[in-house]
Design a protein around this nucleic acid. Structure first.
Lengths: 378, 378
DNA sequence: CTGAAAGCGCTTACAG
DNA sequence: CTGAAAGCGCTTACAG
């Protein structure tokens, strides 16, 4: 009975039409095509609507009829709340939302399923016109579900889905330049703080097997870039400790830094896959009584706001632009134009005050060449 | 003709049912109620679906039928891209998304209308189950549209919509404590950098009239807090320059700082309504050859990541928690429980290294009491 | 300038 | 275990 009461009380366009003795089409036209009816009738309709508490056509009905949702979906591998805590993700969203908004599209952030591998389709109730797949491994159940849906989609920082447009950056080159910069300053003892490598992400030392099993394209590529530069300088990549961290936060960097700085012989340079991690490593160094860059050099990645505030040497990537391009690519597809392009944006080394020559070593036997900036081959 | 081709090609649950000679209900049940049909038939259905390219029930149809959208809408007064560039907004979204995600809801970020006051309802195509109204002035057309829709809604940092649940912080008290801290250190010459006050927001000096016309509850309240503290210490609020900035960025703070530090007599303390602004003012000071806090003390607001990185003295507010509470309040209403509460969360002064005693003044005649921390009345 | 008809794709009691 | 029927609320040609 109460169910029926509610039912009876719901006001739709048809209710307004009935009340006024006009057809539902006319009510619809009053809202959508003012030129299709007299101003007088339109006024009456609005008046009755107001009196009855009708707020205009229900988007649910309209969207089904028009077969459009007015929104772009965004898929993250992490929980949404982790994405918002990650400056790289929010800068990307900044650009993406600018593109969406310019075309009057909203952004629907798709919730991560409570259990990975839970039964049921996490996309079952997600009404969107297209999908942005942000930095997810191809095997992720959400990506599989997205592909099954055959929605127009764009992948970002993750190139392995054939047929879909892709936007990414030169991760290998960026990582390589950071390592070369430190090599050029004379460093020989390196450590790395990596972002998530495989699923599930870990907060732990990543051995060779773990590195080889990396499924996130961006972190895999950055490892490759670091390794290439160090290898070219004659260093043994196998001896370089790599700490993996699941979350892109200062706290994670601090923790990883503590662990790396505990080891002997201590590294003189730490390559970090994000600025948050880099800032955290700097904090761990100061905690341990080490000066940066006197005793320890640190590089980040992204060039987020915290990097410039902290004076962090880092690799700049055009995060906002990456989001804008992803959005425009998807919107172009939605407009019916073919857009199966792949864009790889450039990265750039930004030298600030957390990198310098290594301390003149008392015990290590390594070369003490403090100068020279290039060409450390062989 | 091509229209018809496309029409003919679309695969729905009915297509699968026809192909297999079963009813649409059975196909629906295969996806939604596995217990309602034999495993064998279910398998057949999935097989045919796969062959025909049917990805499961279309969310558009399902959402209409179920009268739910599976998403919470978020309304901002700024463009979406500005919201993502604002650390306070993203920290709020972090908490909100955690609450939404825990209940398997997505977050739909509603695009700002291209023209303010454009014709048509910006919410016309926005399918959501409820709305979070974040820091908007009551008169804003989007808020009016939202109220008209009669959707369950929660307002945040903006208390003036009667009947709606509200979550906010103690802006007055937080601002007052920042000012009292600086007064206690002996400062007498203040300046303020404010966030948006009225619509449209401006990048300019805000005179008394502008301050009185402020429509954003949070900035209005913070001004009141600053003014109360300075007034209680016998200072003339009318003589305190207030610079308004539309965007919460370091660049905006730097610009405001430059203008304030150009004036003579120069202020010895700058109260900022955000950490980004505060960091910017610190940069402007260093640019001008002033030391912080030796020549100039600066306070922020929020205690965002940049505040701790920069060592900024600030007023901490529980941004993430605010978002979580807003989300939970809205979800409770969606679950049919009454939730017309108002929550005002506490703020807390965090003293770091950008505040100290004013420089021992050579020319100004003010008192030079460098100590004392409270009770500057009269 | 207005209305009757069809249908967007789905799910839910209900009957068998 | 399966199907026929009704309807969620809307918009779009089309006829008048």
């Amino acid at each position: 009975v109460s169910e029926r009461d509610i039912e009876a009380r719901r006001v739709t366009g048809a209710t307004v039409a009935r009340e006024l003795g006009v057809s539902p089409s006319t009510v619809s036209n009053a809202y959508n095509r003012p030129d299709q009816l007299s101003a007088a009738l339109r006024g009456q309709i609005f008046e009755v609507a107001d009196r009855l508490g009708y707020a205009g056509p229900d988007p649910l009905g309209r969207n089904l009829r028009r077969r459009s949702a007015g929104a772009l979906g965004v898929l993250f591998s992490e929980r949404l709340s982790d994405a918002f805590a990650d400056p790289a993700a929010t800068a990307f969203l900044e650009g993406l939302s600018a593109a969406a908004e310019a075309a009057a599209y909203g952004l629907l952030l798709v919730p991560a399923p409570a259990d990975i591998e839970e039964p049921g389709d996490p996309l079952a109730s997600v009404s969107v016109d297209g999908l942005v797949v942000y930095s997810m491994p191809r095997e992720h159940p959400l990506v599989a579900a997205a592909l099954r849906r055959r929605l127009p989609a764009v992948t970002v920082d993750q190139p392995r889905v054939p047929g879909l447009p892709f936007v990414g950056i030169d991760d290998v080159g960026g990582a390589r330049r950071a390592a070369e910069h430190l090599l050029g300053l004379g460093h020989r003892r390196f450590a790395v703080v990596a972002l998530r490598l495989a699923v599930p992400a870990r907060d732990a030392r990543a051995d060779r097997a773990r590195q080889a099993a990396a499924v996130y394209a961006f972190s895999r590529a950055r490892l490759r870039g670091y390794a290439a530069a160090l290898g070219a300088a004659g260093l043994d990549w196998g001896g370089v400790p790599v700490e993996e961290r699941a979350h892109n936060t200062v706290a994670a960097g601090r923790d990883a830094g503590r662990r790396l700085l505990d080891a002997l012989p201590r590294p003189t340079a730490v390559l970090c896959m994000s600025d948050q991690l880099g800032v955290g490593v700097c904090e761990a160094a100061r905690e341990a009584g080490l000066s940066v860059p006197g005793d320890l050099s640190v590089t980040g990645f992204d060039d987020a706001v915290s990097a410039s505030v902290a004076g962090l040497t880092t690799v700049r990537q055009p995060l906002r632009e990456k989001g804008e391009i992803a959005g425009r690519l998807l919107l172009r597809r939605l407009a019916g134009q073919p857009a199966s392009s792949r864009r790889r944006l450039p990265t750039e080394l930004v030298v600030r005050s957390t990198s310098g020559p290594p301390p003149t070593s008392r015990k290590a036997g390594g070369g003490a060449q403090v100068s020279g900036s290039q060409g450390l081959r062989g």
